[in-house]
Design a binder for these strands. Structure first.
Length: 173
DNA sequence: TTAGTGATATCC
DNA sequence: GATATCACTAAA
């Protein structure tokens, strides 16, 4: 029996949540009742106003307000006019922390994941641990977790560009 | 390598 | 009001 992740899971440090989220199962129930399941293969941790790679590094704005809010809330962001990025807010209130869901095992790439799961801007601000049409499950799988530098943030400077805040789930044989 | 795309932030 | 930027993908 799979265990649905509750708010306590997300109410921890962003690095811990990002690491443990790799290998979990993202479940999406569509309006017609079909359920789509995708195991998370990669995550990235963004957090702290000192993190130049984090959207909240430039201060609190209307867009980043969600990152400062309650843990367990979904932060969806439209990039390059056509790609939805999905994050889950973690940590304490008033701390801008979020985990980017970077890839699933079947659909590598953050925008492919959201496209496959039919996630768009209407999910921004919704809870991922409530009785909504999207949630996360733990099926007891404990893959090996590897770390690597984050990608796509060249603008953040050498330090933040190279810091290892990316987590990759490796499934052994 | 380059085009495509639109919300957001930051400047007038 | 205008412009610059961006946690990407697909096609070449």
């Amino acid at each position: 029996m799979n265990k649905k992740l509750n708010e306590e899971f997300f109410h921890r440090d962003v690095m811990t949540v990002a690491r443990e989220l790799a290998g979990k199962i993202l479940v999406r129930r569509l309006d017609d009742g079909t359920e789509i399941r995708e195991r998370i293969a990669e995550t990235e941790a963004y957090g702290g106003e000192e993190d130049l790679g984090c959207h909240a590094s430039k201060g609190r704005t209307k867009r980043t307000e969600i990152l400062y809010g309650e843990s367990g809330v979904i932060y969806v962001y439209l990039c390059y006019g056509m790609h939805w990025m999905m994050n889950v807010v973690t940590g304490e209130k008033d701390e801008p922390q979020g985990v980017l869901l970077r890839a699933g095992t079947e659909h590598c790439g953050p925008a492919k994941l959201t496209k496959y799961l039919c996630i768009d801007g209407s999910f921004n601000g919704r809870k991922i641990c409530g009785n909504d049409s999207i949630w996360l499950e733990d099926d007891g799988c404990r893959p090996e977790i590897k770390t690597a530098p984050r990608v796509g943030i060249d603008y953040a400077g050498n330090y933040w560009k190279n810091v290892e805040r990316r987590f990759i789930a490796v499934f052994g044989e």
